[in-house]
Amino acid sequence: MIPAKANQNLQTTKSGRKIRVKNAAIGWSFVIIATVMICLFYFYPMVQALILSFQSGTGTNLTFTGIDNYARLFKDPTFITTVKNTVIYLVIQVPVMILLALFLSVLLNNKTLKLKGVFRTAIFLPCVTSLVAYSVIFKYLFGQDGIINIMLMKVSFISEPIQWLTDPFWAKIAIIIAITWRWTGYNMIFYLSALQNVDESIYEAAKIDGASSFQQFFKITIPMLKPIILFTSITSTIGTLQLFDEVMNITKGGPGNSTMTISQYIYNLSFKYTPDFGYAATVSYAIVIMIIIFSIIQFKVAGDKNE
């Protein structure tokens, strides 16, 4: 299980085949624990959920219905609404958040900056703050006579209070603001940790060549951080396609399903309504398929060939 002896004979090519087998064995032993655990606690239940997705009925009264559930997806107006909502969140929110997080992390990575620790902690705090507190305060901030409306009206930006949480359009905006607020600091952490691995001397060289900050950012920082940017965009995509907490706690999907996400629909099908775990599993697999498509696109765009 634990890789025992070194492959110090890596360079010595006495009997190449033997060494390769041995190297392979060491490599595999590094990944074996993780593989076993994931198979046990993810793939086994996933297979069960897949079987479940071909069944329908309430509670324990499930019967096999073939692909009926999958056909139902396309006729289910609630499902279609939730897909639309989720894609809107994804397309608008993920790019904004990633750029914002990158930008903040570059600012914070400045050696001469003072109070770095305070800034870092402050910007990270939203994702530590309990969801309960966060939902109460957001509902308050975005309320009819909440601070945001008061401020916007004071500067004469608007003449009437915006119905942030009770109007279908503004409620979506409020949710996008809420997710961005909560997760920007989180993504920033990954960039900050990655920036430590970027060789300072590259920047020094660029400065000597007269590169502006902008050029440095786009020509050095972004390409250097590509593996982590790819990582955060894929995980953010997954997070947004599975978005649940914010919506559940701030708008409960309302008004009239206008902010409901696919994950919340799964929750409703399993727990709020008379449970139909079969159809809920089908909707879950619809998410899986969407995520796979988006991830493949992102891998392709990033040109990460695992070379």
């Binding site: 279908p168 008004p255 399903n257 409703n268 008379t274």
Partner: peptide
């Protein structure tokens, strides 16, 4: 009956319309 909340979600959409 069995479906109070399922139907209420449908009606809530209708109410907005």
């Amino acid at each position: 009956g069995m479906h109070t909340y399922a139907i209420e979600d449908i009606i809530a959409v209708g109410m907005q319309d």
